[in-house]
Design a protein around this nucleic acid. Structure first.
Lengths: 337, 337
DNA sequence: TTGTACGCGTTATCAG
DNA sequence: CTGATAACGCGTACAA
């Protein structure tokens, strides 16, 4: 025997005013006399009234909800970004609808379906698929969309990304500064914009110092530890004399170091290793990892902010925001003799 | 100049049928003649019609949405659980509203507010606060609620938890089997049910073999690496002759090992260390960590399944489901001489 | 400052 | 099998 939550009419009756007045008491309190406002509030409290969000949303065609498409909820980096998003959107009164796309087009399309069926106010894409490929309709440019993390260069959507090129140049120069001349590279998937950018950055720094690098000294794989271990093995088969290893994620680096240890190489004495991300574990790993600190939460927050701005109409420019990353120097690199 | 999405009336006009028929075409296709069904579908496609979820939800008072309260979106374990939840709920056609409570009562209460304002169909609590303390109203037992991970023993809510007592007994016995007699314990927060249960498990196993343990050999702290490091330092100040360390999370263990290394102790030769969670990094850590594998995704999936069952009315029992955990043996423990 | 009355898009009820 | 119509709870002209 559960009774329904009180609705606006119940309150209006209880307070002896019209429903319109009750409505205004919540949406535009200023416009009521103090007296009636107090009356309404009292009644509302007495009846434990909470405006029916569903009805409001239905009426106003705005759900105050943002859809976040996350490629992998099991991946720390993405959830750090998600955390940043949650913080800024919740402050602005928006709720988060979260789907785990697994980078699967089918699931992403379902997500896009929600835009219209659930009247989601905006979309934050953390995966790589550009919105253009997800929706053929012309309403594409009508739905506020921000691409975070991995926007491809040729998408029109506003985006927030890391300056991967300069970050990887920077850490490469760090290694060069230690005297290294013979580099191995373990990259992410070849078709990932992130991988491409980071590779560009490394190559740029290398070229700049006329350091040679052959394509057999680079391996593309997936962003996880097991892959890093495997890739490292291959790399040292190809060229046993590598002295520096640039890994495009900390996970990759951690896997690689495991492999190095298993073939008797000392890190950093025999080979220096760097990563990307500054995962929480990096500092506690042995050796502590020198890496690029990705401002994941900030990235999420910025993306959310950008979307919020679009929603409030204060900016309808399609910005691309590029965040800089710092390198954090720990113990996985040493001077070459 | 954007036109509104087509609505049910547009379709009904286009197809030359009533709105009711269009509605049925989507909700109960069986009951239409093949011919009309085809006609409606054609019109729907032509107009790119998608039922307005908001209206449906409003009309039916059910949002097909589940609220998940996560204590910390930045914590891998919780997001693994979240991932498990997402998988099973999305299959069932539910969406996820996610809030990051930071274990803060204020934010949790806001969440509870959504139950009524957003007509959320059910709530999954991953944090420790029991629903009872969040809502004083009598509608408490009317809203489907499942407590995951850290249900306190005295809550009435249905819950899914790990059998922390037996898991920690098991790993303690593993250590005892290696001949250890002198144990240090690094626990989580003292007021956490998880900590209590795991402590009970350890003590149980110890008592069983008449192994002595003093309270100065236990330290309570927070579940992170830095705390583990600190706690380990204190523990060895109290008793330098500890040969085994039981840490109630892998993070704690990783921090502790860092400390051990820094004071010149070898792991596992001088002291054996075990953790809890089986974080992805555990296997790649040096030494690879012997630990209790928490079935995080499964835990999420089970909790979601339980909630779904309540929602569909197929079970209104308040079950408490307890999952067993396996220990995974790696290289951080050794036989004592 | 406040009230009246209509409509948002859908589903359920009741006829036909 | 299908159609007409009344809700659902709220915001918002428009009027008073």
């Amino acid at each position: 025997m559960k009774k329904n939550p009180a609705n606006i009419k119940d309150v209006s009756r209880h307070a002896g005013v019209s429903t319109a007045t009750v409505s205004r008491a919540f949406s535009d309190p200023e416009r009521l006399s103090e007296k009636t406002l107090a009356k309404v509030n009292a009644s509302a409290k007495a009846l434990n009234y909470r405006p029916n969000f569903l009805a409001k949303t239905f009426r106003s065609k705005r759900s105050n909800t943002i859809l976040v498409m996350v490629p992998d909820l099991g991946n720390v980096f993405f959830t750090r970004v998600l955390s940043g998003i949650e913080q800024t959107t919740s402050e602005a009164g928006y709720s988060l609808l979260v789907i785990d796309t697994k980078d699967d087009l089918g699931r992403e399309s379902e997500g896009i379906g929600m835009i219209i069926s659930r009247r989601v106010d905006g979309v934050l894409q953390l995966g790589k698929t550009p919105i253009e490929t997800l929706t053929s309709e012309d309403d594409m440019d009508t739905i506020p969309f921000v691409h975070a993390i991995e926007a491809t260069d040729d998408t029109d959507a506003p985006s927030v990304t890391l300056d991967n090129v300069s970050a990887s140049s920077k850490i490469t120069r760090h290694l060069i500064g230690h005297g290294h001349q013979r580099f191995g590279i373990i990259g992410g998937p070849k078709d990932s914009q992130i991988t491409r950018d980071r590779l560009d950055g490394v190559l740029l720094a290398l070229d700049n110092k006329n350091i040679e690098h052959s394509s057999s000294q680079t391996i593309f794989t997936n962003f996880n530890m097991a892959s890093g271990q495997l890739a490292c093995a291959k790399l040292f088969e190809n060229d046993p004399d590598l002295t520096a290893l640039i890994c495009m994620s900390d996970d990759l680096a951690i896997g690689a170091i495991k492999q190095l240890k298993s073939i008797g190489k000392l890190v950093p004495d025999d080979v220096s290793v760097v990563g990307f991300d500054d995962v929480a574990y990096s500092g506690f790993f042995d050796p502590a990892l020198t890496t690029v600190a990705q401002p994941a939460e900030l990235l999420g927050a910025e993306a959310a902010r950008m979307l919020l701005d679009k929603l409030s109409g204060s900016s309808n420019q399609n910005f691309r925001k590029v965040l800089q990353a710092d390198i954090v120097v720990r113990d996985s690199c040493s001077q070459i003799n």
